[in-house]
Design a protein around this nucleic acid. Structure first.
Lengths: 235, 235
DNA sequence: ATTACTACTAAACGAGTAC
DNA sequence: TGTACTCGTTTAGTAGTAA
């Protein structure tokens, strides 16, 4: 879910580095004349390696190259500029973000008293889940006991970041408090959301999860199984 | 003069890549818990390689790491964040610039009719050179005949970018036109400036250079010698 | 589970050189 | 001068495994 440029093969980053160096010479804006030897100096590597890189970049379609007796004319292509642009955009997002895009928690599945399930089925809540999460939650929650102190700490940090807010309400009998929730991916596979009721039912080492599907079945979970939860904050 | 992060050793860029991946997991903002196996997946490499990288990053002081039985806790250090920040800043500068930071020209030294020298010594010009370039120019110009069509094209492109403007003036005898100049580095060593008089004396395959020192001596230049001129536009 | 060592394999590098 | 090939050397990457 972290949106990074596709790494695909191992040379991707080295090529990006070459592209960056070429951009330093202005090749993203104009056709520059350079030599493999000069480029090699700038990258402190050998002439042969620089030459190989240019060949690879040309094959990849990241640069346009014309070889002349005095050197080669190079211009970074649209595709190449897009690569640098993507890197720039990702870095910008990372460096300028005020809080993490996601927090990862680990814990083990257990069977709770099922109180969460009761809430999920309350219509006033359910309608908001459908509207704000985009799916009708399975009528039950998955209870996860956090593994370590680190996870509990991370859980508290997560709660400090912006969340999807589910409004509370009241009927003739009682008051239903507001709920914060964060979209999650469980075990890198299943979609869901972590629920934080404003008034805590369990202790802070426990989290409750809802999902469009019955997670125990979808992920073949049983009590005691470990799960990895990646929770996303609001952008 | 292109201000890039110091490459120093060949692994610098690879380490920067690992740092970037860790930042994607939020390690630049909070201490994350991960495993070498998980990081390896994200970088699509092996667990062993990921482990080696983390060791190297820790040695470099780019990350703080605590190994626990369930994985390792990682936080990017101030130094590490500075690395990412530098990369980000450089990319931003490159990608958001409207024109190149520098243009490189090549040509051969020749002896001109010395008209340029005459101008340099004119006091109204000279004072402006001292003020705007920061040095008193040697009373003479170095004439360079551009090598190829590419260089002539590049020279015209350069002229379109913002320059240091030297005001023209007039005395009782005649009018002295305005001059544009660009700071340059000749042969990666000597400081100077390229002059473009508004009214062209030579054809467009010739440029005139002034410098604080006598360049023919400083760089041991003789007629017919090749020079590489890196000209800088205004920021 | 982890991390990370050792020993091996694969890939990248660069010296020499042809063009 | 240039670029870029071959090929021996070096380095990075990984499998197996100990702790």
């Amino acid at each position: 879910m972290t949106m990074s440029a596709p790494p695909i093969n191992g040379n991707h980053w080295k090529h990006l580095y070459v592209l960056y160096k070429l951009a330093e010479m202005g090749a993203h804006q104009r056709t520059i004349k350079t030599s493999t030897e000069y480029l090699a100096q700038k990258m402190n590597t050998s002439q042969q390696t620089a030459s190989r890189y240019l060949i690879q970049l040309e094959r990849k379609g990241w640069i346009k190259r014309t070889i002349t007796p005095e050197g080669c004319l190079i211009k970074i292509s649209e595709t190449g500029i897009a690569q640098l642009g993507a890197l720039h955009a990702n870095l910008k997002m990372l460096m300028e973000a005020k809080y993490p895009a996601s927090v990862t928690l680990e814990g083990t599945v257990f069977t709770g008293i099922g109180e969460g399930a009761y809430y999920v089925t309350k219509d006033k809540y359910r309608k908001q889940f459908i509207e704000k999460l985009g799916y009708d939650p399975y009528p039950g929650t998955l209870n996860v006991k956090l593994t370590s102190d680190y996870d509990i700490k991370a859980r508290h940090e997560l709660e400090a970041y912006p969340a999807i807010e589910i409004q509370g309400f009241q009927n003739e009998n009682r008051t239903y408090g507001p709920v914060k929730c964060y979209p999650i991916i469980i075990n890198n596979k299943a979609k869901g959301a972590i629920l934080f009721a404003m008034r805590t039912h369990y202790d802070d080492s426990v989290v409750e999860i809802i999902a469009p599907n019955f997670l125990r079945q979808q992920l073949k979970l049983k009590d005691g199984y470990k799960v990895k939860i990646e929770a996303f904050t609001l952008p």
